[in-house]
Design a protein around this nucleic acid. Sequence first.
DNA 1: CTGTATCCTGACCGATACTG
DNA 2: CAGTATCGGTCAGGATACAG
Lengths: 132, 132
Amino acid sequence: MSPSHIELPKDMPSPESEGCRVTREILDRVGDKWSLYIIATLANGTRRFNELKREIDGISQRMLTLTLRGLERDGLITRTIYPTIPPRVDYELTALGMTLWGPVMSLVKWADANKLAISAARAHFDTKSETT
Amino acid sequence: MSPSHIELPKDMPSPESEGCRVTREILDRVGDKWSLYIIATLANGTRRFNELKREIDGISQRMLTLTLRGLERDGLITRTIYPTIPPRVDYELTALGMTLWGPVMSLVKWADANKLAISAARAHFDTKSETT
DNA sequence: CTGTATCCTGACCGATACTG
DNA sequence: CAGTATCGGTCAGGATACAG
């Protein structure tokens, strides 16, 4: 059962290579602590700053701001300011942001489908290592 | 164009919730600095420790060891020791590890397909912010 | 060859206080 | 309401030296 038939992406030979940088940064974004939760929440519709803060349990104001800025910079969400008093800011997924949700979901589904196998593998590994 | 029809995974309500922990940890693994490169390399076939070190540009011995251990613990790769002199250790993707490659590839392909759009979005964002 | 152990730096990130 | 500024603890991870 050799896996050598699996095709590799042409732009993923080396973490330091220029062609791979953007790909690397995307994965960093998806892999970071909060981006996915923000995207997941916005997938349900437009949210205001404090709505996101309330719905995403445990996120600090600072990290919410920073993560939102990163997502906005990458063109994944839009930030709409209403110059009212008090101010109101709406965050919304862009078309690009919505297309990201598909691939992410396939990964999440994989994780969900295999979490028992992984937990079992970990338990087995940790048991074996009980020779300290 | 409301995205409210997008379906959310049931186990992703909150980063702190118990049911989400494993999913979170999977994403952490995929998102970390080196796991994907190791999986990508092993997708081409079995490799020895130093082969991996050579093929994955920039990885330190320490991080290679640590990442391999993590992947092994999660049941994604196997570690086969040949007690020869000098010692030889082969790393190989498990069946589980190979199934991970599909979802990961869809994410990598998304990143690849959209990297121009993202780079453009960043350039635009950074230009707008030139008011410091 | 395949690791482990130690030190060390910088980044991440939470808490808190302050602003328009 | 929606942020920004600052401080400080924790920790990932690189460099280096050493071991089996």
